[in-house]
Design a protein around this nucleic acid. Structure first.
Length: 561
RNA sequence: GCGCCCGUAGCUCAGCUGGAUAGAGCAUCGGCCUUCUAAGCCGAGGGUCCCAGGUUCGAGUCCUGGCGGGCGUGCCA
């Protein structure tokens, strides 16, 4: 593409001036009088070359003349180089987009490399809540962005099916089970109070009858535990499926024990000489690797803390061949980051392994006030309820449109709004509107197939409204690259909203009631083909962008009033 | 106390590796439907980028010190 050609020419020119490998920007200036593309290259290397930026810009400009598709280059301001593209090059970008089609925006940066994204990882102790929802949307979108960058991506869900929380679940189920059978029993204070626990107990009676009624053995409790975990796991999976999120693998904590990985990790850590006994517990000197303080590995009662299986699990990820791992977690878990990494460094893994994306919590607001509208969970709003209320696409988009590290106030009024206020509909509608143009062209008997569009004379796209759209569309690949590198799906949302706005603007400019001469559906076949090519390119970008985020790109919008 | 994150328009938030006059949506006000879906478009007003220093050709962005808010700081997960 043209941007790459200019970028390459700039690199060569900089090398010739003695500033090879310099970092510079080449992007679209806000102000169109500053050209179609602009670079800060001269300023960026001024310090290194100890020369005035404008002088360097002059030298660069001399070496940049004659790039195919560039009409002229100007020096401006403190030393910017502004590139003005000719009509042919501008139009050529449309062809390039159409040529790539559903692959437009993909790159091969991660080719041949594997990455694991671990996310959601909810304990099977209850229905998924909104924090899990945000994490599901975030993890899936980050995984998708990496796939668009050529990585081979493994989506993994880790669940804690052992330990104290699960034990409390089992006790709670037993209490409800006994209640349903007419016995006097109560759920302990630190147990699980939600209605779903009774549902589990009822399911247990249906399957096994009253056989645990008088059985206080560990085996009976174990059967209840197993039943509850399996049921909740199925339910979580069903809720995630309704949210269009799927995993390649579900990894249970108990496997770390049954496969001997926890025991193995203990002995490996002991071999490092970084462990010691104190107050009856076994500690690891994590402070040697930047942790705030040392951590207990094995409690004085002989059972491991959660820290140990975490380390064992990440050693296992590494041994499975995942040297790039991204864990998406709520920021309330951020204290585990340093200690897990410290434990892994003790075992000679690199300091930055694994990578973490931490997100803040979610609240739902209606009329500016926080609301909770879930009955089953007992205390919190569930993901399933939210999805039932607003739909998967809206929920996903809203979870993604803010930076992960900020608190997310889910605006329920806006989410339920089917008007222009709702960004999801705005983007989807812009896509549907472009599809509609092709439908109408077809009705008039005009050929607008792929071959026609890709061979259209797009140098006819000279109107400002058209050129602005083309420039926006041309930025899509760089945008995806940036979003992938920054683990930042919200950038895609921003981009799509802006693109949809520009598409709508362009569409209105050429609306028959306003300015028929600029309509996409003009009588002049050559002009029509060029504009439909632009419409096709825009539709491709909106479609691909929505697809990266895991959203549908409808060909037609149906409003349910 | 210490660690991490956040602080940008009335509201919700973008802002890339430091780059040209700080942007978007909503809200407010004024225009635009006999013609491709007005679920839209055009225009206007609206800013101490939390504060104070520093780094430099240039700081919302980097550094230091404050202020305000969130989370964490367990032999809980």
């Amino acid at each position: 593409m043209l941007t790459e050609r200019i970028s390459e020419a700039l690199r060569e020119a900089l090398a010739a001036l003695g500033a090879g490998n310099a970092r510079f920007r080449l992007d679209r200036p806000r102000d169109t009088s500053h050209g179609d593309l602009a670079t800060n290259a001269a300023m960026a290397v001024a310090g290194r070359l100890s020369r005035p930026p404008r002088e360097i810009a002059r030298d660069l400009k001399e070496r940049l003349d004659g790039i195919d598709g560039v009409e002229r280059v100007e020096i401006a301001g403190p030393g910017f180089l502004n590139f003005f593209l000719d009509a042919g090059a501008m139009g050529g970008r449309v062809q390039a987009i159409l040529g790539r089609g559903e692959r437009y925006g993909r790159n091969e940066d991660g080719r041949g490399r594997r990455v694991m994204v671990e996310f959601v990882s909810a304990n099977p102790t209850g229905p998924l809540h909104l924090g899990h929802g945000r994490q599901a949307a975030l993890g899936d979108a980050i995984a998708s962005l990496l796939e668009w960058s050529g990585w081979t991506v493994h989506r993994e869900f880790y669940f804690n099916d052992a330990g104290g929380q699960i034990h409390r679940l089992a006790i709670s189920v037993r209490a409800r089970y006994l209640q349903l059978l007419g016995h006097d029993a109560s759920v302990p204070e630190d147990g699980y109070q939600g209605e779903y626990v009774s549902e589990i107990a009822a399911g247990l009676i249906e399957r096994d009858g009253p056989r645990y009624e008088d059985d206080r053995s560990e085996e009976a409790l174990e059967a209840m535990r197993g039943f509850a975990v399996a049921l909740l796991r199925r339910e979580q999976e069903r809720d995630l499926a309704a949210f269009n999120v799927r995993f390649d693998e579900y990894y249970p904590e108990t496997r770390l024990y049954s496969d001997g990985l926890v025991a193995n990790t203990i002995s490996k850590l002991r071999e490092t000489g970084l462990t010691y006994r104190e107050d009856g517990a076994l500690w690891l000197r994590t402070s040697a690797f930047g942790d705030q303080k040392d951590r207990v590995m094995v409690k004085s009662n002989g059972s491991p803390t959660y820290f140990l299986p975490d380390v064992a699990y990440h050693m296992n990820k590494w041994e499975r061949g995942f040297h790039h791992v991204i864990n998406v977690q709520g920021s309330d878990h951020h204290s585990t980051v340093d200690r897990v990494r410290a434990g892994l460094q003790a075992l000679d893994r690199p300091p930055g392994y694994p990578e973490y994306v931490l997100h803040q919590m979610v609240t739902v607001e209606r009329d500016g006030d926080e609301v909770r509208f879930s009955k089953r969970s007992g205390s919190y709003t569930t993901l399933a309820d939210l999805v039932a209320e607003v739909g998967a696409d809206v929920a996903r988009y809203f979870f993604l449109m803010r930076r992960p590290e900020g608190h997310l106030a889910f605006d329920l009024d806006l989410a339920l709004d089917q008007s222009d206020r709702n960004p999801v509909f705005k983007v989807q509608y812009a896509h549907a509107r472009l599809c509609r143009l092709f439908e109408l062209a077809g009705k008039k008997g005009w050929v607008a197939d792929h071959d026609t569009l890709i061979s259209a004379d797009t140098s006819l796209l000279v109107d400002r409204s058209e050129r602005e759209v083309v420039k926006q569309l041309a930025e899509f690949p760089a945008l995806l690259r940036r979003a992938a590198a920054g683990r930042a799906p919200h950038l895609v949302c921003d981009y799509l909203e802006k693109t949809a706005g520009m598409v709508n603007s362009w569409y209105q400019t050429g609306h028959p009631t306003r300015n028929p001469a600029l309509s996409a559906l003009v009588d002049d076949p050559a002009l029509r083909a060029a504009r439909l090519a632009l419409a096709g390119a825009a539709r491709t970008v909106l479609h691909n962008g929505l697809s990266v985020l895991g959203l549908d790109a409808p060909r037609r919008m149906v409003r349910d009033d």
